[in-house]
Simulated assay, not measured.
Amino acid sequence: MLSGDLRPNHQQGVESVAAQGLAELADREMRAELSAHEGRPILWAARLTPQGHDVLAYTDASPAPVVQLQGLVDGEQLIELRPAEMDALRVYMSVEARLRVPQAEGLAERVRTACFDRPGNRWQLCLTAEQIESVAYAFYLRSMGGSVAEANRFGREYGVVFHADRLTGSLRLICLR
């Protein structure tokens, strides 16, 4: 991008991206070379870094965010997860091949296409009962690794938790509602 190709507010945006390491601003020597090449003075220029190219490639390959959820299909429930909860769920999705208890069918697609509600600061997913149980299991696994916050909130909000039965030592799904 050369100085004449951008409006001032866009130039500020590029400078902000440069501060994140996604673009680099041309130094004096590069601007002199560009000026000679263009046949006019170049006072400002920027180009994407390799990481900037990767961000564009990644976001281009990602599904477009859904502005609004479509209506629920029979048997589905709207689940809203905090960002930290969605992060924990994504970790669970990433270890699928190593798990002995299979994830619910279709959960991976629902997680991949979840939409983020900015005003509510929540990820929204429409899930079946089986998928909700898988989410509860993911949060149970998280609770065994250190944080019980996700499992506790999910149990309060959606009434589904996993607990170890102290008498038998087996894991049980408990529906609180």
Rank of each mutant, 00 (worst) to 15 (best):
residue 75 G to N: 03
residue 75 G to Y: 10
residue 77 Q to F: 07
residue 77 Q to S: 08
residue 80 E to G: 04
residue 80 E to M: 13
residue 81 L to F: 14
residue 82 R to E: 15
residue 82 R to I: 03
residue 84 A to Y: 12
residue 85 E to G: 08
residue 85 E to Y: 02
residue 87 D to L: 09
residue 88 A to G: 05
residue 89 L to N: 00
residue 89 L to C: 05
residue 90 R to L: 08
residue 91 V to P: 05
residue 92 Y to W: 10
residue 94 S to V: 04
residue 98 R to C: 06
residue 99 L to M: 12
residue 104 A to I: 02
residue 105 E to I: 07
residue 105 E to M: 00
residue 106 G to L: 01
residue 107 L to K: 03
residue 107 L to W: 10
residue 107 L to F: 07
residue 108 A to P: 02
residue 108 A to T: 09
residue 109 E to I: 12
residue 110 R to I: 07
residue 110 R to D: 11
residue 111 V to T: 05
residue 112 R to A: 04
residue 113 T to S: 07
residue 114 A to F: 04
residue 114 A to S: 08
residue 114 A to H: 05
residue 115 C to M: 13
residue 116 F to I: 09
residue 117 D to Q: 07
residue 119 P to Q: 10
residue 120 G to I: 09
residue 121 N to S: 13
residue 123 W to P: 01
residue 126 C to N: 13
residue 128 T to Y: 06
residue 130 E to V: 02
residue 130 E to P: 09
residue 131 Q to S: 00
residue 133 E to K: 07
residue 135 V to C: 00
residue 135 V to G: 00
residue 135 V to S: 00
residue 136 A to P: 07
residue 138 A to H: 00
residue 139 F to N: 00
residue 141 L to P: 05
residue 141 L to E: 11
residue 143 S to G: 01
residue 143 S to E: 06
residue 143 S to D: 06
residue 144 M to A: 14
residue 145 G to R: 13
residue 146 G to N: 05
residue 146 G to A: 10
residue 147 S to Y: 15
residue 147 S to C: 08
residue 147 S to G: 13
residue 149 A to F: 15
residue 149 A to Q: 09
residue 150 E to L: 01
residue 151 A to E: 08
residue 151 A to G: 12
residue 152 N to M: 15
residue 153 R to F: 02
residue 154 F to L: 02
residue 155 G to Y: 05
residue 155 G to N: 11
residue 155 G to H: 06
residue 157 E to H: 03
residue 158 Y to M: 02
residue 158 Y to S: 00
residue 159 G to C: 01
residue 159 G to Y: 05
